[in-house]
């Protein structure tokens, strides 16, 4: 059952994915057990107490259903306290340093990714510098911005290291979704939102948008790539090399 369930899910490719999947599986197992046993009793009752000629009237049920209710409640409590909340709390702590950091600026209908470059420091941004090539508006006068670069719709992160994502939105609410990382969070404009994950396998997947954000919502997706640490360094170096020298 658990295996079957997992065969439908996107590949679990982050450090916490397995634990989240276990919560999902546990909830489904409990749900299935409850539903199946309930259904069995239901069908049994329908067959046994169907109207027949000469059917003798039965006696009402005793107190056993109350025990069943108590069992279901106990299962719920166990699920919440034993599985869901611990998993959630472990995610709530900040990522172990040093994390790879990246800014994602959402707008209708694109994910703009601002990389801090090798220095790991984000340069200032300013709306005045926003243009077709730079939807984020990096202020190149800021020394920290010399090695910053922006890619539209391409999110690349290193394997085996936590990535901390600073999310923001220019216009409406978007839903930042990395299915294989088990990451999904609303990007509400005006609110500082961060999320983090540690990819454990390399691969190429998608960034999705899970909140209705307008007519182009259905096509608001981006490339999401996890590369090995070396390949990621090479990628950053390559992108920085492409930057024009600051004026």
């Amino acid at each position: 059952m658990i295996g079957w369930l997992q065969s439908w899910l996107p590949a679990p490719a982050s450090a916490h994915a397995a634990e989240f999947d276990r919560v999902l599986a546990a909830a489904h197992v409990e749900g299935l057990v409850v539903f199946a046993s309930w259904l069995a009793v239901f069908v049994l009752i329908l067959v046994r107490f169907r109207a027949r000629r000469g059917a003798a009237p039965g006696t009402p049920a005793g107190a056993w259903p109350l025990v069943a209710i108590a069992a279901v409640v106990a299962g719920d409590v166990w699920l919440l306290a034993g599985s869901a909340l611990p998993a959630w709390y472990r995610r709530a702590t900040p990522p172990p340093a040093p994390a790879n950091e990246v800014r994602v600026v959402a707008e209708q209908f694109a994910w703009n990714v601002h990389y801090p470059g090798p220095d790991g420091v984000f340069g200032r941004t300013n709306r005045a510098f926003v243009g077709a090539a730079d939807p984020v508006g990096i202020d190149r006068r800021d020394p920290a911005a010399h090695d910053d670069f922006v890619l539209i719709g391409v999110l690349v992160v290193p394997e085996g290291r936590p990535t901390l994502v600073h999310l923001s939105s220019k216009d409406v609410i978007h839903g930042f979704t990395l299915a294989t990382m088990r990451v999904k969070v609303d990007v509400t404009p005006g609110l500082p939102i961060t999320t983090w994950f540690t990819p454990v396998t390399t691969g190429t997947w998608e960034v999705g948008c899970s909140q209705l954000c307008g007519l182009g919502h259905y096509r608001m997706r981006a490339l999401f790539e996890v590369r090995s640490a070396d390949a990621f360094r090479a990628f950053v170096a390559d992108e920085v090399a492409r930057l024009e020298p600051a004026p």
Binding site: F42, I45, L46, R50, A51, A55, P57
Partner: peptide, 9 residues
């Protein structure tokens, strides 16, 4: 469901 128990459905 338990209401049905012992009924004539």
């Amino acid at each position: 469901v338990v209401t049905l128990w012992g009924g004539t459905i």
